[in-house]
């Protein structure tokens, strides 16, 4: 099955809310070997002027990849997840992600480019609070390898 070229320009609406928990921030921070106290200790985070624990700079990938799953699991997309390679990633933080945030993501398929038998797909997740405050924009380029690639 090949990649559906009509994916370009498609959007997927905001899905379920992602509740950012303190323990998830601590778990993610440990998983990327982050040691800054603002990820672990509420008082340390507050001393820097944050309302609660601060998520590591790549934490938004959890929310972005949940949004990407809508596209990858869309039977109409033609994407075989076992052939997906992460090619490029960008994060723009409009403000830090803080424990207690309720986040939603709207996914946009910005481009689909055929490459051999595969395709490079660029998606953008606009992450905001459930109330509509912009929090982060993430851009991911994934390469779906064709047969023999």
């Amino acid at each position: 099955m090949s990649i559906n070229p009509e994916l370009q320009g498609r959007s997927y609406p905001k899905g379920a809310t992602y509740d950012v928990g303190r323990e998830k921030i601590r778990e993610f921070a440990r998983a990327v070997k982050a040691t800054h106290p603002a990820h672990f200790d509420v008082d340390a985070a507050r001393a820097l002027g944050h309302a609660d624990l601060v998520a590591p700079p790549t934490f938004a990938i959890i929310v972005a990849q949940r949004a990407d799953a809508q596209l990858i699991e869309d039977p109409d997309s033609g994407i075989d997840f076992s052939r997906v390679v992460h090619a490029e990633q960008r994060f723009t933080h409009h403000r830090p992600i803080i424990a207690g945030d309720e986040l939603v993501a709207e996914l946009h398929v910005d481009s689909v480019r055929g490459m051999g038998g595969g395709a490079m797909i660029t998606t953008r997740a606009e992450i905001s609070t459930a109330a509509g405050e912009p929090v982060a924009t993430t851009i991911s380029a994934i390469l779906v390898r064709g047969e023999g690639q």
Binding site: A34, H36, H50, A55, P57, R95
Partner: peptide, 16 residues
């Protein structure tokens, strides 16, 4: 990517 940025976070003094 996540592990590499700690160098920056520590230097900046604030992950935010």
């Amino acid at each position: 990517m996540g592990a590499a940025v700690q160098l920056v976070t520590d230097w900046a003094g604030d992950p935010g």
